[in-house]
Computed example of a mutant assay.
Amino acid sequence: MGPGRVRAVFFDLDNTLVDTAGASRRGVLEVIKLLQSKYHFKEEAEVVCDKVQVKLSKECFCPPSTCIDDVRTEHWEEAIQETTGSPASQNAAKECYFLWKSTRLQHLTLSEDVRAMLTELRKEFRLLLLTNGDRQTQREKIEACACEPYFDAIVVGGEQEEEKPAPSIFFYSCDLLGVQPADCVMVGDTLETDIQGGLNAGLRATVWVNRNGMAPPKPSPRPHYTVSSVLELPALLHSMDSMDSGHHLEAS
């Protein structure tokens, strides 16, 4: 890590500041109820939802002009057909998708603790939200959790030429804030994008939010620091300058 004070902190959004995974699970539960009550699925309802989750994890947005709502409606249509062996009506697929989506957005919130933390940090540091993903999807999440007032800038990967872990998106973020990479800390829950990206760009430090205390797979990028909650960040930032650059803080 370079010398001098930390001047800026870059935050990931999903599963770092907001519980996207938990909100998605709530959406899935609502869709299961819908499939069982309206469409008379039994155990197939959970299978359909499992298949959709796999499809979501493999999404790629090329060309970028593709409408995400159309792509994700197709996920549900395919999953229903794969599970039942019969073509799914597009209306049923749309109903499942929009119920999942609306439920997820309803439950995407910045907790009071996170709001308070960001408010305090912004008194000392410049804050930037750096999130990968489709432009429409991420902007809808940002609006749903009302996080824009807490940041000096917001950068969405789907609006840039490259996403995390490419160095270019980190350099663009630095330019927006008028800081150098060595002035910045990246905070996120994903080793392959948040942590690797911060390392690729030569940021002062990377902080991995490891909520579940899981052991990182090998090989994987090695963060400078590991915390179990983003709420541990203020204490870490205040002690960072006095820490030896080779020391790793493991928070329980």
Rank of each mutant, 00 (worst) to 15 (best):
Leu231Ser: 03
Thr84Met: 05
His75Lys: 06
Glu120Gly: 02
Pro64Lys: 13
Asp19Cys: 03
Ser168Pro: 01
Ser173Pro: 04
Arg115Cys: 11
Gly202Arg: 03
Asn200Glu: 06
Cys174Gly: 10
Lys123Pro: 08
Pro223Thr: 13
Val230Asn: 05
Ala146Cys: 10
Pro87Thr: 02
Gln36Val: 08
Gly202Glu: 02
Leu129Lys: 07
Pro63Phe: 00
Pro149Ser: 06
Val207Phe: 09
Ala45Trp: 05
Gln53Ile: 00
Leu121Trp: 03
Cys49Asn: 10
Val207Leu: 10
Trp100Ile: 01
Ala8Pro: 01
Cys147His: 09
Glu140Gly: 02
Asn15Trp: 03
Lys101Thr: 00
Ala251Val: 13
Glu74Ser: 07
His247Ala: 12
Leu56Arg: 15
Leu176Ser: 01
Thr131Ile: 12
Gln136Asn: 06
Leu199Glu: 11
Tyr225Cys: 08
Ser86Met: 04
Leu249Pro: 00
Glu74Gly: 00
Leu118Asn: 13
Ala92Val: 10
Ser102Arg: 11
Ser229Asp: 14
Asn91Leu: 09
Val18Thr: 14
Thr83Asn: 11
Asp70Thr: 14
Val230Asp: 06
Leu231Arg: 05
Phe11Pro: 07
Pro165Ser: 12
Tyr150Ser: 07
Thr73Ala: 13
Trp100Ser: 11
Asp19Gln: 08
Leu203Met: 12
Ile32Met: 15
Thr131Leu: 10
Lys101Gln: 03
Asn210Thr: 09
Ala205Met: 06
His40Gly: 00
Gln106Asn: 12
Ile32Val: 15
Asn212Pro: 04
Asn132Gln: 08
Cys184His: 01
Val187Glu: 11
Ser228His: 12
Glu43Ala: 07
Asp175Ala: 15
Leu237Tyr: 07
Val155Trp: 03
Arg211Trp: 06
Met117Thr: 08
Gly27Asn: 08
Leu29Pro: 01
Arg126Pro: 00
Cys67Ser: 15
Glu163Lys: 09
Gly158Asn: 08
Asn15Lys: 04
Thr193Leu: 02
Pro216Met: 12
Asn212Phe: 14
Cys49Gly: 09
Asp69Gln: 07
Glu148Asp: 11
Ser245Leu: 07
Lys141Met: 02
Ala8Lys: 05
Ser168Ala: 14
Ala146Pro: 01
His238Ala: 13
Thr83Cys: 14
Thr103Met: 07
Leu35Arg: 09
Pro63His: 00
Phe11Ile: 08
Lys51Pro: 00
His224Gly: 15
Arg7Trp: 04
Glu159Met: 11
Ser102Gln: 10
Leu129Tyr: 07
